[in-house]
C-alpha cells in the first residue's frame, strides 16, 4: 500500500487527431472542462483533427455516418442504421444537423465559437507541423486562435508535467 498523497491533475495536453464532428468535440469539451476546473490545458491538432482549426473547414465539420456501427436513428437508443445506409447522400448532413441541434440544447457552442472560448480561457492551441507540411498548409490557413505550428518534439516540451490525452 502506498501512503503517497494522490495529487489532483494540474495540467493536460490534449491531442485531437480526427476531423469528424464527433472526433473533434470530446477533445474540445475536455480542454474547456480542464480550464473551468483551473487545470492548465494545451490543445494539439494533428492529421484530420486540423480541420477543427482551418478557417475554411471549421464551420463545416460533419458526423461520420460510414463505418460507424454505433450509429442509430432517430436517437441514440433507436435501431441501428444499417452501415450501407450511412453512405446514402445526405445522411451525414442529416446526422450532423441532428447532433448540432442536440448540442445547442446543452449550450455546447459550434466549433469556431468553442475554439475562441477555449483560447480566451487560457488554453494554448497548436497545429502539428508534420501534418501542416503534408497537407501543404501555412499558418495563414488557420483561425487566429492557433498560437503556432509546432513539431512533435516541441509538443512534448510544452507538455512537460502534463497528462497527455489522445483523442
Amino acid at each position: 500500500m502506498t501512503t503517497e498523497k494522490i495529487e489532483p491533475i494540474k495540467k493536460v495536453s490534449i491531442v485531437v487527431s480526427r476531423g469528424s464532428l464527433e472526433g473533434v468535440y470530446p477533445g474540445l469539451i475536455m480542454a474547456n472542462g480542464a480550464r473551468m476546473e483551473g487545470i492548465e490545458a494545451t490543445l494539439f491538432f494533428t492529421f484530420f483533427g486540423l480541420h477543427a482549426v482551418i478557417e475554411e473547414k471549421m464551420d463545416k465539420l460533419k458526423v461520420a455516418t460510414v463505418g460507424n456501427p454505433a450509429m442509430c436513428v432517430p436517437t441514440a437508443m433507436g435501431p441501428g442504421l444499417p452501415t450501407w445506409m450511412g453512405a446514402i447522400p445526405g445522411m451525414s448532413w442529416f446526422a450532423t444537423s441532428m447532433m448540432k441541434k442536440e448540442m445547442e440544447k446543452l449550450d455546447i457552442p459550434p466549433v469556431r465559437e468553442f475554439i475562441e472560448m477555449i483560447h480566451d480561457a487560457g488554453c494554448e492551441i497548436y497545429a502539428c507541423k508534420a501534418t501542416v507540411d503534408m497537407f501543404h498548409l501555412t499558418k495563414k490557413d488557420f483561425c487566429p486562435q492557433v498560437d503556432a505550428v509546432i513539431s512533435v518534439g516541441e509538443f512534448y516540451e510544452k507538455s512537460a508535467g502534463a497528462q497527455i490525452i489522445f483523442t
Partner: peptide
C-alpha cells in the same frame, strides 16, 4: 471569457 478567468482564476464556474 477572458475577464471571467481573470476575476476568478483557477476555476471560474466553481
Amino acid at each position: 471569457t477572458k475577464e471571467l478567468y481573470q476575476l476568478f482564476p483557477k476555476g471560474p464556474a466553481k
